[in-house]
Design a binder for these strands. Structure first.
Lengths: 226, 226
DNA sequence: GTAAATAATATTGTAAACAAAATTGTTAGA
DNA sequence: TCTAACAATTTTGTTTACAATATTATTTAC
């Protein structure tokens, strides 16, 4: 699967189901502890039970669901500890990617970053989805130029995490500050100052995580976060 | 699987086969491009074909084998690019782990590190396996104290890579230098200087990777590395 | 003899049948 | 009414049989 280029129809179905379930979990349509019964899902998606089993197994590997023998799959719970750890890792990986990318980014890339910042400034504060997309695009432009394909893959895997509904919903208050930091990052990269870009990105992400955790502590019901 | 605590006998068999195949590949008993035919392996290990399928699928996720639809599994090839990228990531992760661990390491941990260094100094230069083990132990003591369980898991996954036979075999020449660097790392950590420990570890690993790549370029037959 | 076409075989992919375990429901006894 | 034992049902786990595809061998036409 890691390198698979061709796909069988079975694998295509698995991918489709996996993606759909992933989105459902990230967007809060399926909540933590909700049971995921194979036969039900098979009927729902009109696929064989083996497709569902495979999909659930993948989501388990992503820590999005938990599987217990003879008990089945359930949407995984989320802990503050887990969130803290993930953001720490993301800041490390993205900071380093920016450091590496500084040498590879073309004037055209810098232009793209600046354009994205303009778009971000034009976003309505209440449109968290739009902000989320532009934020991801900004970081992706940088990450993709780091020159280390495995690092790119690692970032991709870890960054998915930030699509969780409770994280997206926590964004609005800090959008202006985030944009200011994006400007600093773009400036550092334009000057090919990888060390500075790294510093700013690491602080950027850790700061965001700090506010996020504070917000979650205050606003999410006990039991939601285990 | 990620969180699975209890295991069914089927899963136990899968794990066993996976481990065995992994060791065989890392140790060079099974070489790149070698086909892994399900039925043959099933007979060899005295397990059902599905056990083998599952095991191969896991190894595929680890990039140790490649699977193509209706063609089957084969031991994955290794590229210099892949090696370079992996070491870059390991240096990043372990450097950061050391930075974090500096605050958590106890005097007892420091003692353990110093004892390991003494053991390393006593190792016979030709006993690469012994050196490899002591080297891994040294780094593990530090990593385990970083306080971020996901980072520990990430390191565990990426570090496995260094068990490849051609990497282990490349070690002997640089053992003394490595020990000197270990001493510097232990000193930095004893002084709770996380920033310094990080710097030394990053340089330590990148330097080792540089020599390794040079060595491989000169000593491995073309076609071995794709 | 060579190359294309076709058959035979080997190998992987998938679904469906069956087995094992957990969960729920029911009954019987106190 | 409560609990313990047991039966019924649901759900997951695994094997097995078969289908799909690729590979190799064989035949046939030139």
């Amino acid at each position: 699967m890691a390198t698979a280029t061709k796909k069988t129809t079975f694998q295509a179905e698995v991918d489709k189901v996996t993606r759909k379930l992933r989105v459902d979990i990230y967007s809060g349509i399926r909540l933590p502890r909700e049971r995921l019964v194979e036969q039900d899902l098979a009927k729902l998606f009109n696929v064989s039970r083996m497709v569902i089993r495979q999909a659930l197994s993948q989501l388990d590997a992503d820590s999005l669901v938990t599987i217990e023998p003879y008990k089945g799959a359930a949407v995984a719970e989320i802990s503050l500890k887990r969130i803290r750890e993930s953001y720490q890792i993301i800041s490390l990986l993205e900071g380093y990617a920016a450091y590496l990318a500084a040498e590879h980014l073309t004037p055209k890339d810098i232009k793209t970053l600046k354009d994205l910042i303009k778009e971000q400034q034009a976003v309505n504060v209440s449109d968290v989805q739009a902000w989320q997309n532009l934020n991801k695009k900004f970081h992706r432009v940088i990450n993709l130029k780091c020159g280390n394909s495995r690092l790119i893959e690692l970032i991709r895997q870890n960054v998915q995490f930030t699509s969780y509904w409770f994280i997206v919903l926590s964004a609005p208050g800090r959008i202006p500050e985030n944009i200011k930091e994006h400007i600093k990052i773009a400036e550092a990269l334009e000057g090919k100052d990888g060390v500075e870009a790294r510093k700013v990105i690491e602080r950027h992400i850790i700061t965001a995580a700090g506010y996020l955790l504070e917000h979650l502590r205050n606003n999410l019901p006990m039991g939601m976060l285990n």
